[in-house]
Design a protein around this nucleic acid. Sequence first.
DNA 1: ACAAAAGTGTTCTTTGTACACCCATGT
DNA 2: ACATGGGTGTACAAAGAACACTTTTGT
Lengths: 258, 258
Amino acid sequence: MMSDERHCYAFARPSVTTDIAVFTVDNAQLQILLIERKEAPTGWALPGGFLQVGDRRTELAVARGEPPPKQNFDFSLEDCARRELREEAGVSVGALHQLGAFGDANRDVRGRYVTVAYWAFVHKSQHRPKAGSDAKSVRWCQVSTLPGLAFHDHAYIIEQARGSIASQHLDTALFLDLMPQRFTYPEFHRTYQIATHRTIDRSSLHRRVLPLLRDAVIEDARSHLAAPRGAHRPPTMYDKARAVGATAAGAVAARTRS
Amino acid sequence: MMSDERHCYAFARPSVTTDIAVFTVDNAQLQILLIERKEAPTGWALPGGFLQVGDRRTELAVARGEPPPKQNFDFSLEDCARRELREEAGVSVGALHQLGAFGDANRDVRGRYVTVAYWAFVHKSQHRPKAGSDAKSVRWCQVSTLPGLAFHDHAYIIEQARGSIASQHLDTALFLDLMPQRFTYPEFHRTYQIATHRTIDRSSLHRRVLPLLRDAVIEDARSHLAAPRGAHRPPTMYDKARAVGATAAGAVAARTRS
DNA sequence: ACAAAAGTGTTCTTTGTACACCCATGT
DNA sequence: ACATGGGTGTACAAAGAACACTTTTGT
């Protein structure tokens, strides 16, 4: 009902969307969150969707500094990415990293789309992906065996994101986002190697990461329950929320809720 | 006449623009190309403008693979940047580097704008900036003493671009775009230092750059006319068009014209 | 005791740079 | 001769990583 085209402009405009490549490490594999589209073009795709802008009057008011509407309004591109991720896939992320804008005229068969791509790291435990409004389903897919994608530049975007992650002057601290609330260094070492797709000496990485975890040690011996037990020294547990540089996904989720 | 708002959509859409930070080195200063806007908000700004998209029928046809219209159509975001730079400032550049997308709701008082920012290097000799349709004037401004800008995130964008240029993992070859058709290594050395805002040993930079210029030597002794004369060995002249990695602005201009 | 974790010290490589000193080539 | 350009060799510094080895701490 009422899909009237009520927003009219003197010049044609493209649709603006954000797409987000959410990576996680599980089962010794780098995985990415994909959604199965309900509408054409059907198939698998990166989660994402339209930048919600207000009508003329609203936008002018916001541009003048008035408070933005609470509903159906993305103040920033990053807001849009977070919202789409939440609505479409049920996932709230910490740090979002912008990859760039993609806008070739033939990138979407439905018409002219300009998309701003982001990537993020999460740990599965903190998210329960749930297909939202526009998605038939949501799935973690191994990046090594991606299904065919509904938009032909999504594979390229994922490629770019992986390059960004691997070839790096990327801060070690960013990889903390891949960890659960509590984790040990050996776990971090394994995860880091999988995410960057290379091997690195345990001790060398340890030296780089330890400073970040200095204040995140969980002293309580009972907390070690989740750590590997055995006839050996138990690993130190760290609390992601207290690690420097980590963007606690929990905190972000809480902030969003309030 | 007929500024009717003929393009209507079910959902509000932002305007999409590109902005370009064009840098050059002249008079021992890093300079940037700014235009003086004719329309509100008046004042100085980065050259740039609207992404020209077709109407629904046109875009669908292009998305299906049919050839894009010759007129008033930007196939890619980069095409848009080149066109705007040409139309608005009379400048054609070689390599364009995407900085990212900026789309906060309060970035433009006229309404909701999403801009994709690019930066480029040029040499003044190859361009005659000329105020185009939307510009009252065009000017090279020293980045050290920028005027106030009509859009408050343009200063931020310029800042980002300068950071990108200075804090390097930037390929040396890109700086060849700052040179004229023919240049000497000592000239390159000076230019490089100004652009990156640091000093570097003549000999060290020489080693990095020489491989790029191997096949660009101008043998003809008469070509040395433009080189500094004096009671000393004359410098070797190089031809930018034959240097590896340089994107000859002339070639791009020619391609555009055909 | 054993095994995994934690921690330390050393070496190696790479990369970029400075620096010193050569030769080349014009007026 | 001399001033500038071109070129080479060496040394140095920092960063990242490998490697070897020790110590810790539980069963």
